[in-house]
Amino acid sequence: MTEYKLVVVGAGGVGKSALTIQLIQNHFVDEYDPTIEDSYRKQVVIDGETCLLDILDTAGQEEYSAMRDQYMRTGEGFLCVFAINNTKSFEDIHHYREQIKRVKDSEDVPMVLVGNKCDLPSRTVDTKQAQDLARSYGIPFIETSAKTRQGVDDAFYTLVREIRKHKEKMSKDGKKKKKKSKTKCVIM
Score class of each variant (00 low, 15 high):
E63T: 07
E63S: 05
E63H: 06
E63A: 03
Y64C: 15
S65N: 12
S65A: 07
S65F: 04
S65V: 07
S65Q: 07
S65H: 07
A66E: 07
A66Y: 05
A66F: 07
A66W: 04
A66D: 07
A66L: 12
M67C: 04
R68I: 13
R68E: 14
R68Q: 15
R68H: 15
R68A: 15
R68G: 15
D69P: 03
D69R: 03
D69K: 04
D69Q: 04
Q70I: 00
Q70N: 02
Q70K: 05
Q70S: 03
Q70C: 02
Q70F: 03
M72Y: 14
M72E: 04
M72I: 14
M72S: 13
M72C: 13
M72L: 14
M72Q: 04
R73K: 08
R73F: 07
R73V: 08
T74D: 10
T74E: 08
T74P: 12
T74V: 14
T74K: 03
T74F: 15
T74R: 06
G75Q: 10
G75A: 13
G75E: 04
E76K: 04
E76I: 12
E76W: 10
E76F: 08
E76Y: 13
E76N: 05
G77T: 02
G77W: 02
G77N: 01
G77I: 06
G77P: 01
F78Y: 06
F78D: 01
L79N: 00
L79W: 01
L79D: 00
L79I: 10
L79V: 11
L79M: 05
L79E: 00
L79F: 06
C80D: 02
C80V: 14
C80A: 05
C80E: 02
C80T: 03
V81D: 01
V81S: 05
V81G: 04
F82E: 02
F82A: 12
F82N: 03
F82V: 05
A83V: 03
A83Q: 14
A83S: 13
A83F: 01
I84S: 14
I84Q: 14
I84V: 13
I84L: 13
I84W: 12
N86C: 06
N86L: 02
N86D: 14
N86T: 03
N86K: 05
T87G: 08
T87E: 14
K88E: 12
K88A: 07
K88R: 08
F90V: 08
F90N: 04
F90W: 13
D92A: 12
I93G: 02
H95G: 07
Y96L: 15
Y96P: 00
Y96R: 02
R97W: 15
R97Q: 11
E98A: 05
E98P: 01
E98C: 04
I100S: 02
I100L: 13
I100V: 07
K101M: 12
R102S: 07
R102G: 05
K104N: 11
K104S: 13
K104T: 11
D105G: 14
D105E: 11
D105S: 07
S106M: 12
S106E: 12
S106N: 09
S106D: 12
S106I: 09
E107H: 09
E107N: 10
E107G: 10
E107F: 12
D108W: 04
D108C: 06
D108A: 08
D108E: 10
D108F: 09
V109T: 05
V109A: 06
V109R: 03
V109I: 12
P110A: 03
P110K: 03
M111S: 01
M111P: 00
M111C: 06
M111N: 01
M111H: 00
V112L: 06
V112D: 00
L113A: 04
L113P: 01
L113W: 10
V114L: 10
V114C: 06
V114Q: 01
G115S: 06
G115Y: 06
G115R: 03
G115E: 05
G115L: 10
G115A: 13
G115C: 10
G115D: 03
N116A: 15
N116I: 12
N116Y: 02
N116P: 00
N116V: 15
N116M: 15
K117G: 14
K117I: 15
K117F: 15
K117R: 12
K117H: 14
K117Y: 15
C118S: 10
C118A: 11
C118P: 05
C118M: 11
C118T: 07
C118V: 10
D119P: 03
D119A: 03
D119N: 06
D119Q: 04
D119V: 02
D119M: 02
D119Y: 04
D119G: 07
D119K: 02
L120Q: 06
L120M: 09
P121T: 12
P121E: 13
P121V: 10
P121Q: 12
S122N: 12
S122W: 08
S122Q: 08
S122A: 09
S122R: 07
S122E: 13
R123F: 08
R123Y: 09
R123G: 13
R123I: 09
R123L: 09
T124L: 09
T124D: 13
V125M: 11
V125K: 10
V125S: 10
V125P: 09
V125A: 11
V125F: 10
V125G: 11
D126Q: 07
D126E: 12
D126N: 08
D126V: 08
